[in-house]
Design a protein around this nucleic acid. Structure first.
Lengths: 185, 185
DNA sequence: GACAATACGGAGCGTGCGTTCCGGTTGTCA
DNA sequence: TGACAACCGGAACGCACGCTCCGTATTGTC
């Protein structure tokens, strides 16, 4: 991994950079040849460094997912669990909606970056944040971490269907708050 | 359309039935050859009756969308706009989540069955139902018909990601209600 | 019952994509 | 600097899919 030839290391970096850009724009749907061309490299070179397109995708996405997980862990002991939770929830969705790679990664429930360790870290950190917000009475108690991930995926679908409609995110956020309302017609 | 040969009419019906079944299961992703085989027919026969896979898909989906629109129109003058609206909202999502064809049709914002007349009918009827529920104070006023369609698409994404979690639909429904809540932590 | 007209089936075409293969090139190290 | 291993590019392969083409079969008519 480290005793690579200089040009190999250089090309690997170029491929990663190109993949990051291309995947961010079009998600997993981008053809691998496009990535190779964007990197100024042949398709074979991509496969020398990554065993498959999937693996390259994971390599690109893993970093971001880990960032999310770390961010969540850093907030685990914050003073106001409710506010912190909603801030985080919204931030994740906003970030992901700017990056189709992350959207695709989150939307693949069973496999990919989520089956690996980083996905579990994120999952755990998210559940922790949720649990604290629920314990503080800020979030309704009838959902769990898996439900929350599903809601994130749903919000990303909304954003893709109707780009730039932030107030729809507020609908979900309001729905997540502790139920404590007056009867309405 | 009516002066067809007997076998032609028979095959057309078989193709439609097969397409309905296959599209319902796997959405637009199902290969056309699979539909032909399921219908007991050659691929050429499918193309004799429908100019493209898209057209066949629309033919299958159109009926259902029209049903939805009609259903909404029938409820337009109901006594309790709020309850009627939420019932309808939930019913549409439940129906669609059992039928990937409808999911795919609703998720394609610009084209397909939605650009055609039936899509507009559905859109209009949905907006009408929403407006009445808002006028009755049952639904928050800061969303419109397009927002609602986006939310439906989002709910379908949630359902696909986490099948069978009905309570998540309730989160969105609660978020849609008129804002009238107590401050919470 | 025979003859057009119509419809059928499925092989085949074009395209796009993931992946592999290999002849040529480049970096490394003695 | 020479020689070998590592690496590179991109042509080519296999596959899947939408769609078309045409020899054959079926239907309606006289």
């Amino acid at each position: 991994m480290e005793k690579m030839r200089a040009d190999a290391r250089r090309n690997r970096a170029k491929v990663l950079a190109a993949a990051e850009e291309a995947f961010a724009l079009d998600g997993l749907a981008v053809p691998l040849d496009d990535i190779a061309r964007l990197a100024g490299v042949g398709a074979g070179t991509v496969y020398r460094h990554f065993p498959s397109k999937e693996a390259l995708f994971q390599a690109v996405v893993l970093e971001r997912i880990q960032q999310f997980a770390e961010e969540a862990r850093a907030l685990a002991n914050a003073e106001e669990p409710g506010a912190v939770f909603f801030d985080y929830f919204v931030r994740v969705i906003r970030q992901a909606s700017l990056n189709r790679a992350i959207c695709d990664a989150l939307a693949e429930s069973s496999g990919h970056a989520f089956k690996a360790g980083a996905g579990d870290e994120f999952r755990a950190a998210l559940a922790e944040l949720l649990a604290r917000a629920q314990a503080a009475g800020a979030v309704r108690p009838d959902i769990d971490g898996d439900d929350l991930r599903a809601l994130i995926v749903g919000c990303l679908a909304v954003e893709r269907y109707a780009p730039g409609s932030e107030h729809l995110l507020r609908v979900v956020v309001d729905g997540l708050r502790r139920i404590e309302r007056v009867q309405t017609g």
